[in-house]
């Protein structure tokens, strides 16, 4: 009454097309190659022209539609031009700002400050995140505080920074750092937390020491999480910078986009205000598209993770 073995191990009944007699190694190789070919995942990579077309066309069409509706409203309803300027007024304001050089100056000043502030934030946030991820006592003590700081709007630091540093670039950088450092550190921490324990075990089995494990296994594995922390860090840098520039004007602080916005408000020039808002938005989108999106796409595609949404 031996049990039917096929019930015991049904998955063992493996059919095979090869003859039952001893097979030479070459036969196994062709068999394997055949199976590999059957199981190969066909590449579904889109051409870059098609990808750009799919990524660029819809938002551009939507934008054109919105501007058209705006223009139509201005033409038909004829609202007070100082309250609702038309698209052409905004374009005119941009032209004027370009002509007298304020636009170039403001964009360059803000971009430079945002960029430098962001890089300093990376330089501080990265080691901080590493320490937090690897040293438990620090994590227990500082972790909640850092998460709290991430929620605190960094504009709240502007009054204090003005009192400490006066109307100088230090004020602006301080506010930017308070906004960006927590995001970057937290991004790295969550990236490291999400490294599958199995990969660490493999690293250990392969003979990696502590340092090698960190540099060759943990950090590369944590890269996607770290990168989204960087992206968020940039967003916080840019926002904090604008807030700081709007509130803190004059002194030795240079003329940035936030200053331009505030200046336009003081002149009650709504066309220029809207133009500056569009500029701030435009720079943000440009940095995302030109810097972060391509890196992120490459990073995720190399790991077989498709980026969310089309960029």
């Amino acid at each position: 009454m031996p049990p039917d073995t096929t019930t015991v191990a049904p998955q063992s009944v493996a059919p095979s097309g090869a003859p039952a007699s001893g097979r030479p190694a070459d036969d196994l190789r062709t068999l394997e190659s055949g199976l590999d070919a059957l199981q190969a995942v066909p590449s579904t990579e889109k051409g870059s022209v098609r990808r750009i077309l799919e990524g660029v066309l819809p938002p551009v069409l939507l934008l054109a539609g919105l501007v058209a509706v705006w223009q139509l409203y201005v033409v038909i309803a004829r609202p007070r031009p100082d309250l609702v300027p038309g698209p052409l007024d905004v374009l005119g304001a941009l032209g004027t700002a370009w002509a007298d050089g304020r636009l170039q100056l403001a964009v360059l000043t803000s971009l430079e400050r945002g960029g430098v502030g962001f890089l300093i934030a990376v330089a501080i946030g990265t080691p901080l995140g590493l320490l937090l991820a690897e040293w438990r006592p620090l994590r227990l003590a500082l972790g909640p505080l850092l998460s709290g700081l991430q929620v605190l709007p960094s504009v709240a630091w502007v009054p204090a920074a003005i009192i400490w540093f006066g109307l100088s670039d230090a004020t602006v950088y301080f506010v930017v750092l308070m906004g960006a450092v927590p995001s970057i550190a937290n991004g790295l921490v969550s990236g490291i937390d999400q490294v599958p324990p199995q990969l660490r075990r493999v690293g250990t089995v392969l003979g990696a020491g502590r340092i090698q494990l960190a540099t060759l296994v943990v950090l590369p594995a944590a890269l996607p999480g770290y990168f989204s922390g960087l992206k968020q860090g940039w967003a916080f840098s840019w926002r904090s910078l604008m807030a700081a520039e709007i509130i803190a004007m004059g002194g030795t602080i240079g003329f940035g986009l936030g200053s331009m916005l505030q200046q336009s408000r003081e002149l009650a020039d709504l066309g220029s205000v809207l133009a500056t808002i569009l500029l701030i938005l435009g720079v943000g989108i440009l940095v995302e598209l030109a810097v972060f999106a391509p890196i992120e796409r490459r990073l995720l595609r190399r790991r077989g993770l498709t980026p969310g949404g089309i960029r």
Binding site: Q212, V217, P220, A221
Partner: peptide, 29 residues
């Protein structure tokens, strides 16, 4: 002294090619 181990999931490093995965083991050796 020590042993090589293979797990149920291949646990290859997803950021490296197949060749580089093997090379990493050689490097650590």
């Amino acid at each position: 002294g020590s042993a090589a181990v293979m797990f149920q999931d291949a646990a290859l490093f997803p950021w490296l090619t197949a060749g580089r995965n093997v090379e990493l083991a050689l490097k650590l050796r």
